[in-house]
Design a protein around this nucleic acid. Sequence first.
DNA 1: GAGTGGTCTAGACCACTGT
DNA 2: CAGTGGTCTAGACCACTCC
Lengths: 262, 262
Amino acid sequence: MAAAYERIADDLRTAIRAGRLRPGDRLPAETKLAERFGRSVPTVREALRALRDEGLIEKRHGIGTFVRCRRTPARRSNLRHQWEKDRVRASPEQRARTGATEHDTGLEADELVIRARYREVAADADVAGAFGVPEGTTLLERRFRTRCAAESAPFGLTTSYLVRDMIAGNPDLLDASKEPWPGGSQSQLYSVGIELDRVEERVTARPPTPEEAAELEVPPGTSVLVLRKVSYDVVGRVVDVADLVLPGDRTELLFTTSLERW
Amino acid sequence: MAAAYERIADDLRTAIRAGRLRPGDRLPAETKLAERFGRSVPTVREALRALRDEGLIEKRHGIGTFVRCRRTPARRSNLRHQWEKDRVRASPEQRARTGATEHDTGLEADELVIRARYREVAADADVAGAFGVPEGTTLLERRFRTRCAAESAPFGLTTSYLVRDMIAGNPDLLDASKEPWPGGSQSQLYSVGIELDRVEERVTARPPTPEEAAELEVPPGTSVLVLRKVSYDVVGRVVDVADLVLPGDRTELLFTTSLERW
DNA sequence: GAGTGGTCTAGACCACTGT
DNA sequence: CAGTGGTCTAGACCACTCC
């Protein structure tokens, strides 16, 4: 015997999947639904919560409950790494015009708003392990927030770590006000003679912390994609460790793997 | 003024993060918590639900509420594709011993249980678009469920599509009882003369449907990773389209991108 | 049987939104 | 202002697990 709230949820889910309720449609008020199904309001709310957790509906306080529209996904391809490497040796003007994020999203540079914050931190066990340096090593922590000028929600939150002694040769690299740097991170690293050899990216998903949920403006119940990017240079050193937190409901990560020919 | 359930959740979250409550610890019963915080049981339940949605706690009916232990992640690397391609021309005995999943997880072949189900279907708009064939084209749909012999929950659910006419040259490929095929999908394709050139993988995250949640045994509130894998052969055809649904709380996807040297 | 979480009721009042 | 969802109460009974 299924619970009452499950039967209500099933009813509404079926209606949405069958298209009787379309994206953007408003559902009847909770009191109306309670009346229609002969149940109390909290029971109806339980059903609506289940549907919200499945991403099918969205509640707007004071307005109503709506069938959700899919947000247009923000794409990010691993081809961006080779693309960015090729640009390292292009002219500064060319580099300034378009960065990897513009390349991924198809937006122009002036449609993007980037906020960068730098500070020096001591490496914790996690990041120290990724770099293969002792815990406590001085790192430059760079936090980025990239968003479309027309929206308030960012595409994602990026925290990148560099070993300070490795990049100290160019003082500009320690200065957040130089952002956005023409050509991006690979051009920054090239300014101290570093050439990348490969990039490893680890992808997992988890529920957002309340802080992340607020900053990314993700509706409750949706999860975030977490991407740990580790960059290696041509002599095998780890030169950059970055964590990206991306809203799961609007992010699409594309990875292309080329195979050797026979 | 924060809601009462938020203050209770904050209290418990802080205790968990600070280590006063450790993974595996049992929380006081809901009635006890209600008493301690001077609130009603439903309010306490609201707080616990928030923590469960964050993945911090786990409720077990009739037993209690526990601080969650991290499940050991199942890893999957894109290096598996080259690895599998190299094995295509190895001896059948060698191929039978270890497949790509064993390679990823570090498990032996006899620790894995694979269930395969085949059927013929007409291509819907989505898959037809991925293949670049007309809607309604006859496809072979192959559903796989791979799990560790010691656990009931699978690593993930895989649905792979092949164009029937492309593989009909080898009748064994239409027969689910030939699974597991030594060497995996690439060896199957090679038996009709297909050599892979590259693999594209699209990763997104979303809440599971109730059906997926049941089959993957994911706790409510956690999301799934969805991976759409498209394989291209050396003449540029799409030869395989596969959808993987992976539990977000135990899956780690690793992608390595090699860059051209200067 | 005792203790746990799961479901449900029938209200109450508050906070937010658009008119 | 009226209507919406958000929070909260003080209980009730059920289903599950362990002893």
